[in-house]
Computed example of a mutant assay.
Amino acid sequence: MEDGMVSLLIKIDTLGTVREVFWSDPVYLVSITGMTLEAVFDCKGDAITASGLHGFFQKQRKVITLEGCRLRESGIPVVCSMVALHEEALLLATDFNTAASGDSTGVHSKLVHRFLLELSRWMGNPPHLDKHQSVDDYQQIQILNNELVNTHRRLEKANAQLNRLNEELHNRLVQDALTGLVSRYQYRSEIEQRIAMDPKALGLFAFIDIDSFKSINDTYGHAIGDAFLVGFANRLKKIDMQPPTIHMRIAGDEFGLYIHGLQTVDEHYLARFWQQFSEVMMARPIQADTQSIPVSCSVGIAVYGLDTDNIYTLIEYADFAMYQAKNNGKHSYRRFDAKVYATAHLH
């Protein structure tokens, strides 16, 4: 056997049972007769199953190349070709490198010669097939093999590229590209998953708006504005009240926090939340490149399980409460008030 080369030639019956081993390199690939093809190979589709083989033996032109096969024991990808005569078939399997090598190393030619010799002996010059037909069939097999190998490699390359693109898209959908927080496309799903884990618990949603962010962009430019947002997001990640907190970017200068698994959300809890939020987010300016910029926020709070059991409504209520805080001097928070909301929506 050539170094690294894998090949075998076996005779099978119509059920896919190995009846004779002509050669097996290395020898452990098929060491005994009586094994089934499914014990030796793992192939796509049903080609080596009983039903697949029945269809193959019923064909008039009994030459086939099997796609997507691997040796079950080692996982090595192989190209398999079968030639049928009456109620038996020869199956030739070679590793992909050998099948794709052509005659560049001489290995391929030796294998072809070896196969044709066994094929000629096996066929025993039957009246309806001659040697030239056998050679033509094998040449057709090799053409199919080469096409299969090339197609397989192109597919592997395309699949690798597709996987990279899917991963990039997934990351963009799940994470906000600028800040690394949960993105606007994902945060509702994250909240739904957290609620599903404990549907009877309460959850606090804080809708956060950076006060006068437009003036930061207008004064310092968008590059400084983006750096400020990154610094703001990094601080937001440090707020992790128990139970664990979801940190999200909702829109340009709008952010959010969701805390689920709470038993009570009373004035004492809200005061503790606002104290931590103020200390982490607004106690010190954010250093954005060369600029030191003060931080001010307006925050609206709504509670899942008290104000509503609908996520979209929860976000709407928190958004409404945030605007209440902004309209009442900014730099503060407001708890959602159903009466104020109802009055505002009467006009």
Score class of each variant (00 low, 15 high):
residue 12 I to R: 02
residue 228 F to Y: 09
residue 26 P to W: 05
residue 134 S to E: 13
residue 182 V to D: 01
residue 84 A to V: 11
residue 327 N to M: 09
residue 253 D to E: 15
residue 59 K to L: 15
residue 311 I to W: 07
residue 60 Q to C: 10
residue 230 V to P: 03
residue 321 A to M: 13
residue 151 T to I: 11
residue 268 H to A: 13
residue 285 P to I: 11
residue 320 F to N: 14
residue 163 N to V: 04
residue 142 Q to Y: 10
residue 228 F to H: 04
residue 342 A to V: 11
residue 45 G to Y: 01
residue 89 A to F: 05
residue 328 N to R: 15
residue 5 M to D: 11
residue 121 R to Q: 13
residue 320 F to H: 15
residue 143 I to D: 08
residue 297 C to Y: 01
residue 63 V to F: 11
residue 23 W to D: 01
residue 193 Q to D: 14
residue 130 D to S: 15
residue 213 F to T: 02
residue 225 G to T: 02
residue 99 A to S: 15
residue 346 L to T: 14
residue 189 S to G: 12
residue 148 L to C: 02
residue 284 R to I: 07
residue 224 I to L: 07
residue 56 F to R: 12
residue 53 L to I: 01
residue 230 V to N: 06
residue 71 L to E: 03
residue 252 G to N: 03
residue 230 V to K: 14
residue 322 M to G: 03
residue 17 T to D: 08
residue 344 A to S: 11
residue 131 K to F: 14
residue 158 A to R: 07
residue 209 D to Q: 01
residue 30 V to A: 13
residue 191 I to T: 09
residue 142 Q to V: 12
residue 191 I to V: 15
residue 331 H to W: 01
residue 35 M to V: 04
residue 311 I to Y: 06
residue 169 L to I: 09
residue 338 A to S: 11
residue 145 N to I: 11
residue 114 R to Q: 07
residue 163 N to L: 07
residue 219 T to W: 02
residue 13 D to V: 10
residue 86 H to S: 14
residue 14 T to N: 04
residue 122 W to G: 08
residue 100 A to R: 08
residue 152 H to N: 06
residue 124 G to M: 12
residue 33 T to A: 09
residue 319 D to W: 00
residue 126 P to G: 12
residue 113 H to G: 13
residue 182 V to L: 09
residue 280 V to C: 12
residue 309 D to W: 06
residue 54 H to G: 06
residue 24 S to I: 04
residue 114 R to N: 04
residue 183 S to R: 05
residue 101 S to W: 04
residue 259 I to T: 14
residue 337 D to F: 06
residue 71 L to Q: 00
residue 238 K to F: 00
residue 64 I to L: 12
residue 43 C to V: 00
residue 122 W to A: 08
residue 46 D to E: 14
residue 203 G to F: 00
residue 1 M to S: 14
residue 54 H to P: 00
residue 170 H to L: 12
residue 203 G to D: 06
residue 192 E to G: 05
residue 91 L to R: 03
residue 77 P to Y: 03
residue 221 G to S: 12
residue 309 D to C: 06
residue 268 H to T: 13
residue 253 D to A: 07
residue 155 L to P: 02
residue 141 I to C: 11
residue 284 R to V: 10
residue 190 E to R: 05
residue 318 A to D: 08
residue 57 F to T: 05
residue 7 S to T: 06
residue 65 T to C: 01
